[in-house]
């Protein structure tokens, strides 16, 4: 009974160590591939478009309603205490520092990270990765490095777009739900927020992009089995990315603040 309990813990520890070791090794391989930076530019541009440009509509939609939801939640207290002068600051502060990077990171992980894992895993099980190697192409420089770079860059840029849209959404909902004028919202926003608040969120966005890219590539290329393996890989990738985002958000918030 006791021995099986410890065996189970030991097994889980080994699995976790294996994953962390694999991700660390992948990070090392990517770093090596970037010194000097030699990777496939066509594939890089293709991924920027596929992962970034095609994500813009869903990011705009998510961000707009996120801004709105924050004002709706706050509107009860704003009306009760007449704290209309804090709406712009409150919305901006939380969007810049927390809600923007976290929600967009999770959305990006769900849309782009899972797709990336599924694509890479399918390429592994259908021998397409071996096909690349057989054609004397380094899969890391051709597939992995462009995807990792594209994800970091695009989550950073999408967070800028999402943040702007969320603030716009908050101002719009603030006007019609909490009765806060645009001028009042802008005054509260511009007088209380600083560039550091935005930078705080953008640093998080870049790191979240890196977490999603590493996880999605690792679980994609380390897949075992056929269709069932691909499903498991996508599932593990999304869970690991979500966990990574939340844990690193805590670490970053604690340290940067």
């Amino acid at each position: 009974m006791i021995s099986s309990f410890f065996a189970s813990i030991g097994e889980k520890f080994l699995v976790l160590s294996n994953i962390l070791g694999g991700i660390t090794y992948l990070f090392y391989q990517i770093t090596v591939a970037l010194i000097p930076p030699k990777f496939d530019l066509d594939e890089f541009w293709r991924n920027l478009y596929k992962m970034g440009v095609k994500s813009v509509p869903i990011i705009i939609l998510t961000a707009f309603f996120t801004g709105g939801i924050m004002v709706i939640q706050a509107s009860v207290f704003v009306k009760k205490f007449g704290a209309t002068s804090l709406v712009g600051w409150g919305a901006g502060y939380s969007v810049f520092r927390e809600v923007g990077p976290i929600l967009l990171g999770l959305m990006f992980s769900g849309r782009v990270g899972s797709n990336n894992t599924a694509e890479l895993a399918t390429m592994v099980v259908t021998e397409q990765i071996d096909g690349l190697k057989a054609l004397a192409i380094d899969p890391f420089r051709y597939l992995i490095v462009p995807r990792v770079l594209a994800m970091i860059i695009m989550l950073f840029l999408l967070t800028i777009i999402g943040t702007v849209v969320a603030i716009f959404g908050a101002a719009l909902f603030g006007k019609f739900i909490a009765g806060v004028s645009y001028a009042g919202f802008w005054t509260s926003f511009s007088q209380n927020l600083h560039l550091a608040d935005l930078i705080h969120g953008l640093i998080k966005a870049a790191i979240f992009g890196f977490i999603v890219s590493l996880n999605s590539c690792y679980f994609g290329i380390s897949v075992k089995g056929g269709a069932v393996g691909v499903g498991k890989a996508v599932n593990n990738s999304v869970v690991a990315s979500a966990l990574g985002i939340v844990i690193f958000d805590y670490i970053l918030t604690y340290n940067i603040t």
């Binding site: 259908t126 021998e127 397409q128 096909g131 190697k133 057989a134 054609l135 004397a136």
Partner: peptide
């Protein structure tokens, strides 16, 4: 590998 042309069992064609 540049000196080897390989046909895989399941073809390994690039689906993209």
């Amino acid at each position: 590998r540049k000196q080897i042309g390989m046909l895989f069992q399941n073809n390994a064609l690039f689906d993209f």
